[in-house]
């Protein structure tokens, strides 16, 4: 059971949150200009990282805010949480 540290509310139980998958995926600025492959990359291809992944969560049964987190996909440990729009903190592993 994950204990997730919402940057706005503090540590809360996993079931208050909604998982949003890999973070820092940006929608192409002009979708009409990208080819089918690039569109598929944006829509369907994810890194599926073994290890530390930047991902996004929403504190849906709390403040409702989306935020980013660095979490290890092997140990489930959270290394950092940070706000949407911010870059992932560096130097963590």
């Amino acid at each position: 059971m994950l204990l997730i540290n919402c940057p706005f509310c503090g540590a809360r139980e996993e079931h208050e949150f909604h998982y949003g998958g890999q973070a820092h995926i940006t929608r192409p600025a002009d979708p009409e200009q990208v080819d089918d492959k690039a569109w598929a990359d944006y829509l369907y291809y994810r890194k599926n990282t073994l290890g530390l992944q930047a991902e996004r969560w929403q504190h849906s049964f709390g403040c409702g805010q989306w935020f980013n987190a660095l979490r290890c996909s092997q140990t489930h440990q959270f290394k950092a949480v940070y706000k949407m729009g911010d870059d992932a903190p560096e130097g963590l592993s």
Binding site: G20, T26, R27, R56, Q58, S60, W66, M84, G85
Partner: peptide
């Protein structure tokens, strides 16, 4: 609702 919020907060903040 959740979908709209996600777009607003994550893409069109």
């Amino acid at each position: 609702y959740s979908w709209v919020e996600e777009w607003l907060q994550c893409e069109w903040s």
